[in-house]
Design a protein around this nucleic acid. Structure first.
Length: 270
DNA sequence: CTGATTTGACCTAT
DNA sequence: ATAGGTCAAATCAG
C-alpha cells in the first residue's frame, strides 16, 4: 500500500507529540527542581502552568491526529464476540499513545479507573483509566499510568484516544491566555488546506494547540528570565525542539527544521 | 442510593 | 504460553 499524505501527516503529528512530550518532561523536572530549591510558590505555579499548557497542546495535537485515523478502521478489525456475549477491545496495545511524565496522576480531565495490573519487571502496578464521560458523551479517551522505576515520585502516563468535545475539565484557575480567552474544549477543526502546490505553506494547527503552545512558551520565557542560571540545560531543552507538525486535515506537513518552540509559535502566529 | 473503585477472570496479541 | 488490556460483579464511599 502506498504511503498517503495522511500517513505522512499522521507520522509527523506523532513525532510532534513526542517532541512536545519531551518538553513536558523537562518542565516536570524543572518543577521538581524549583521545589527542591525552595523556589517561591509563584514560580512553582508558573512551572505547573507550563505543564498544563503542554498537556492541552498534546491532547489537542493527539486529538487532531486521532480524528484523522478515525475515518478508517479505528482500532483494527472489530473484535469477535466472546462466548459470554461481550466484545473486548485491545485498544491500547500496539498504539503508541502519548507518553508524559508527571509528579501526579491527575490532569484536568475526569477519569474512571477500570483496571490495575502488575507488570512484569516493574516494581509498581499499572493503572488503567477511561474517561468518566465515556457513556454520556461517547468519549473514547483512555490513559495508562505507572510509577517510574527510576523515580517513584514520577508517574508515566500514556494517553490513548481523544476526549469528546463535551467532556468537562476540572481545571484549576488558568491565568489569562492570549487576549484573555479561556480555552474551551471544542472540536478540533482543520484549517482549509490550499490544494495548489504553489500556494504558500502555512502551518495549520488547531487554534487550541497554537494558544497552548503560545502560553507554554510565554511561561517558559518568564521562567527563563528569572531562572536562566538555575538550570540552563533544562530550560533550553524546554523551549528548543525540532518540530514537525501535520495539518489536522492531512496532506500538509510543515517542518520547522533546527527550530524551536518559539520559532514555531512565531511562525504560527505571524 | 448512586457512582467510583477493587479485583479476579477473561480475552487477545505476541 | 505468556503478558498485558478489559470486563463486570462485588465492594466501598459519599
Amino acid at each position: 500500500m502506498a504511503t498517503t499524505a495522511d500517513d505522512t501527516a499522521t507520522a509527523a503529528a506523532s513525532a510532534a507529540c513526542e517532541v512536545v512530550a519531551g518538553a513536558r518532561d523537562s518542565a516536570v523536572r524543572l518543577l521538581a527542581l524549583l521545589k527542591a530549591t525552595g523556589a517561591d510558590p509563584g514560580r512553582q505555579n508558573l512551572a505547573e502552568q507550563i505543564i498544563r499548557c503542554i498537556d492541552r497542546a498534546l491532547a489537542a495535537v493527539r486529538g487532531a491526529d486521532d480524528g484523522k485515523k478515525r475515518g478508517a478502521s479505528v482500532h483494527g478489525p472489530a473484535a469477535p464476540s466472546s462466548p459470554s456475549g461481550f466484545k473486548r477491545r485491545m485498544r491500547c496495545r500496539g498504539e503508541p499513545g502519548t507518553r508524559v511524565l508527571s509528579p501526579t496522576m491527575d490532569d484536568s480531565f475526569a477519569w474512571r479507573k477500570y483496571g490495575e495490573k502488575t507488570i512484569n519487571h516493574h516494581s509498581y502496578p499499572r493503572f488503567y483509566f477511561r474517561c468518566t464521560y465515556r457513556d454520556e458523551h461517547g468519549c473514547g479517551a483512555k490513559k495508562r499510568v505507572q510509577q517510574t522505576q527510576e523515580d517513584p515520585s514520577l508517574f508515566e502516563t500514556t494517553y490513548f484516544g481523544k476526549h469528546a468535545p463535551a467532556c468537562p475539565r476540572n481545571d484549576a484557575p488558568v491565568p489569562p491566555v492570549v487576549e484573555g480567552t479561556f480555552l474551551p474544549q471544542v472540536p478540533l477543526l482543520a484549517s482549509p488546506i490550499p490544494s495548489d502546490d504553489k500556494a504558500p505553506k502555512v502551518p495549520s494547527l488547531p487554534v487550541e494547540v497554537e494558544e497552548e503552545l503560545m502560553q507554554a512558551k510565554s511561561n517558559a520565557a518568564g521562567l527563563t528570565e528569572e531562572y536562566c542560571l538555575l538550570d540552563h540545560h533544562h530550560l533550553m531543552k524546554l523551549v528548543s525542539a525540532d518540530v514537525s507538525f501535520a495539518s489536522p486535515a492531512g496532506g500538509l506537513v510543515e517542518s520547522v527544521e533546527d527550530g524551536s518552540l518559539e520559532e514555531l509559535v512565531t511562525l504560527l502566529w505571524s
